[in-house]
């Protein structure tokens, strides 16, 4: 009971505060931007035909009323919360009246598939290779990997993405330029293989940088760890190397790595904006980009809400689970 009151409850409250403040901020920011969803929509409608000014003004009025933007910001804010608490994210303004939750539900599996796989691959390989390269730092293969990573890591993401596109999509034409999959969705080899085929380049572009980052982190953590008194002492006592690597080095470097993994998994929900735009991949990042472009308040709100909840929940879980990983974290 004491644990609940002193450890769990404050963190749950913190979670609620973060989500509340985050939602309020994302409510305000698009409304302060110069892009207006009504004008964007009317501009699209009148792009190829003229309309007489009076009916244009009337239409503008009715659209504003339809979107609920004629009310004061306070009223809109209250309406938003009352709808949100019923699980309703409201309609999209860009694709009126398609509900935002529907748009997100369509895009989310793409992003989870792409980023989930990329995060799993880059975290596992980065952490493993980094730990091995740190532990066997005198070996030749470790030095070769490190040189490679040190060169790859500082290359800006956009350049990696474009070089991959140029080489594999434009020049060799091994992989498609844009898109998510081919054929009708279904659990058949044709569709699933096309998912891998289309997802390969975007995933690779993310994996390169993310692996390099985790490799560097894991290697430096391991280097610090093998110089620690307890590793040196266990080596002196001739404790088997495999045991030292596992229970003395890796076990201790895991602590920050687990935090990193949880936050990365939480961050999946915000999508990979640049990747998805560059590869025209139909995920969360892509709809976010379009929503910002069109001033689609409700989609921006929906996506941001998802990412705030994702990250806040990930850090809440880390906080709650950390005592399991690190005995030094005392329950205060």
């Amino acid at each position: 009971m004491n644990l609940l009151r002193t450890y769990i409850l404050p963190r749950l409250l913190q979670w609620v505060m973060v989500v509340f403040v985050g939602i309020t901020a994302t409510f305000l920011i698009p409304r302060l931007s110069p892009v207006n969803p009504v004008d964007e929509m009317l501009a699209r409608m009148t792009a190829f035909q003229s309309m007489d000014p009076d009916s244009f003004a009337a239409m503008r009025e009715s659209t504003i009323a339809l979107f609920g933007l004629d009310k004061s910001p306070i009223e809109q804010y209250i309406t938003y919360w009352s709808r949100l608490l019923q699980g309703d994210l409201g309609p999209s303004f860009g694709n009126f009246p398609r509900p935002v939750s529907d748009i997100i539900a369509t895009a989310l599996p793409w992003t989870i598939g792409l980023l989930g796989t990329a995060t799993a691959i880059s975290w596992t390989s980065g952490v493993l290779l980094g730990a091995l390269a740190g532990y066997y730092h005198n070996r030749r293969w470790a030095q070769v990997i490190e040189r490679f990573v040190v060169v790859a890591y500082p290359i800006p993401y956009l350049i990696i993405a474009f070089v991959l596109i140029l080489i594999f999509a434009a020049w060799l034409q091994w992989f498609p330029l844009v898109g998510g999959a081919r054929g009708d969705p279904g659990f058949n080899w044709e569709y699933i293989s096309s998912l891998l085929y289309f997802g390969f380049l975007p995933a690779l572009s993310i994996v390169i940088g993310a692996t390099a980052f985790r490799f560097i982190m894991a290697k430096s953590l391991t280097t610090t760890e093998i110089a620690s008194d307890y590793v040196q002492y266990a080596e002196l006592a001739a404790v088997p190397k495999r045991k030292i690597m596992l229970y003395y080095v890796a076990r201790n470097t895991m602590l920050p790595q687990v935090t990193d993994l949880a936050l990365s998994l939480g961050a999946i929900f915000e999508g990979a904006l640049i990747t998805e735009v560059v590869f025209a991949y139909p995920g969360i990042g892509f709809i976010t980009y379009n929503a910002i472009y069109n001033g689609d308040y409700n989609v921006i709100m929906g996506v941001t809400l998802l990412s705030i909840v994702g990250i806040a929940t990930a850090s809440l879980l880390i906080d709650l689970l950390y005592p399991v990983f690190d005995p030094r974290v005392r329950l205060r």
Binding site: S228, D229, Y230, Q232, Y233, A234, Y247, Y248, R251, N252, L255, D326, P327, R328
Partner: peptide, 12 residues
């Protein structure tokens, strides 16, 4: 070893 050294693995 020296008393000030941390020779015991902190997570074990």
């Amino acid at each position: 070893p020296q008393g000030s050294m941390h020779v015991l693995n902190p997570v074990r």
